[in-house]
Structure formats: C-alpha cells, structure tokens
Design a protein around this nucleic acid. Sequence first.
DNA 1: TTCCAAATGCAAGTTTGTTTCGCCGGAGAT
DNA 2: ATCTCCGGCGAAACAAACTTGCATTTGGAA
Lengths: 159, 159
Amino acid sequence: MPPSPPAIDSFDLAILAMLQRDNTTPQRLIGEAVNLSAPAVQRRIKRMEQSGVIAGNVAVVEPAAVGQPITIFVEVELESERTELIDAAKRQFSATSEVQQCYYVTGEADFILVVTVADMAAYEALTRKLFFGNNNVRKFRTFVAMDRVKVGLTVPLPG
Amino acid sequence: MPPSPPAIDSFDLAILAMLQRDNTTPQRLIGEAVNLSAPAVQRRIKRMEQSGVIAGNVAVVEPAAVGQPITIFVEVELESERTELIDAAKRQFSATSEVQQCYYVTGEADFILVVTVADMAAYEALTRKLFFGNNNVRKFRTFVAMDRVKVGLTVPLPG
DNA sequence: TTCCAAATGCAAGTTTGTTTCGCCGGAGAT
DNA sequence: ATCTCCGGCGAAACAAACTTGCATTTGGAA
C-alpha cells in the first residue's frame, strides 16, 4: 500500500492558520513567522494540497457587489428517507448554482441549504423549482439573513 | 465626493468566476480565457480587491484533516430582541473561533450558527459557554451534519 | 469635429515561487 | 560500535509570474 502521508504537525497548523486568512502571503513571510525556510514552507504547502488537507485556493467574492445581496437559509424536510431519494436530492441541490452550501443533517430537518439570490422574486422562483416541483419535499422553512455577521470557511486550529 | 468605482462588466464577471474557483490561476490563462491581456486582467483584479468586490483570498482547509470533523448548525432564539442584546450576541459569536459562520435572521430563530468542533464533547462544552451561560438565550436547536454535500462561498454569477 | 478620459497592449523590471544541490541527523543492519 | 541508507532541511540558481511605465486606441462629451 502507498506510504501514508506524514501527520500534521504544529508547523503545518501554523502555516494553515496563515493561509486560510490570506493565501497570497509570501512564503518568505510565512517562514519567518513559523521559523522555517521558504522552501520548507513550500514543500509543506504542496504536500497538504496534494493530500487534500488544503481543499482549494479561492477568491472570496462579496455577493452584494455582484447583484446577489440576499442570503437565505432553508431547512428542508423530505417525505421519504429512502437512500435513493436522499441521493437524488443531494445531486439536485449540488447542481443548483444558487445553492451555495448544502448539508445533510440529523434533527428536525433533513437538509439545510444556504442560498444566494438577487431578490425575493428569484427566491420564490427557486422554491418553485426545488421544493414545490419535488413531490418528495414535505415542507421547508425559510430564514432570511438580515446581517451576515460572520462569514467564512475558517477552521479553528489547535495551537 | 470620491469618484464612484466603475461598474462591474462582463469581463469582471468572467474573471471572478475563475478566481472563485481557483485564485492561483495564472493571469495569462485568465486573459486567454476572457480575451484580455494579462496586465488588463491584473488591473481589474486589483481594482476589485480595493473596491471590496473581492473580499479576500483564502485557502480552504479540510476540517476533518485537522481534527475538526464535526459540523453543526444551531438555531438560536433570544429572550429579548433589544438592539443592545442583539449586538452583544453578535460580538460574542463573532469572537468564538468554533463559530465558523453566524447570521442574524428573520423567522422562527434569531441567529443561525455554523459550528466546527472536534467531537460532541467539545460541542457540549460550547453550548454551556454560549447558550446555557447566557440568560438571553431562550432556546436553541441543533442539527448535526452527516454529509457536507456542498460547501463553499461561491456566488452565482450572471453570464 | 475635436478634445478628454479611460482602458488596452506592449515591453522592461522586480518580486515571487520553484527546482536542484549538498549537508545534516536518525534508524537499521552488519 | 560503525557504516549505510533515507528523509528532511537550508542555500543558491533558475524560471515564471506579477507589476509598472508608456504609447496607442477607443468611446463619449462638448
């Protein structure tokens, strides 16, 4: 079997902490901050990208600046929990560009969606397509965000 | 008054679409894709960063790889909707590293949180700190994510 | 039509990221 | 105990990308 990648150590965590704040930080500065040479930093970053610890490098776009000022949470409850229907729902939600995030959850709902739209008319159209047009959706509850207090994908890192 | 920044055009949208997928894409390739020279691409990116259209450039870290495999949604309902108490809650949630995302919403809840933790014991400790230790929290509902079907901050872009 | 402003493309300069090389330290075998 | 192999680290050379300045063109307003 292939050699398992080395475990994450405190150097890696320190590097990740900087990169998930700003991945344009020069490797030289990262090296100074964590007491490593720039090539060592580079090797560790590359390794973490290949092993999947770093899932991607992305620009964060301000939705309001591109005409999508409304963020909405939706709790979706299905009629049937059959695996096949769950998977179909996952696929449909994933393929919908307005659905920024989709989670399959325990509790009083089956899915929680984070939706980004231009206006409420667009949301209404989306509900027709995703929910009213789907016999397996028993009901859904809508929460409109008035304030995006904290937004990001930052993961809390030990150390 | 300061000159208002130029409106976003279809070139900008095409550039954003590529950057929010992978912001390490060389500007030369972006230029080829959108029919612009590399410096023109560079100028537009810089302008959008300064004007806030691009809110940041970050590495996306896989939570499970750094010992935070559990994602939880929490709907929080407050006792009082007094502005001062709302703001206090916003500040407390924002300052909590386990709270990855926090939204102030309409509907049957006041806040929706996205929480990242190592295990349920850590979540239990967090609820004690944030909810049971706060007299203004009337109740909260927990949804544990079994599958992070779609995760990201990607904004749907026209065009 | 004429002038002005903004944006583009080209080319050079600078910074950054990448690769290669040699060295050091540790684990295992002889 | 010593030798050898292996993996990682640091220094330097290399290549690539990014950034800047300037001349040109384009679009619009006077």
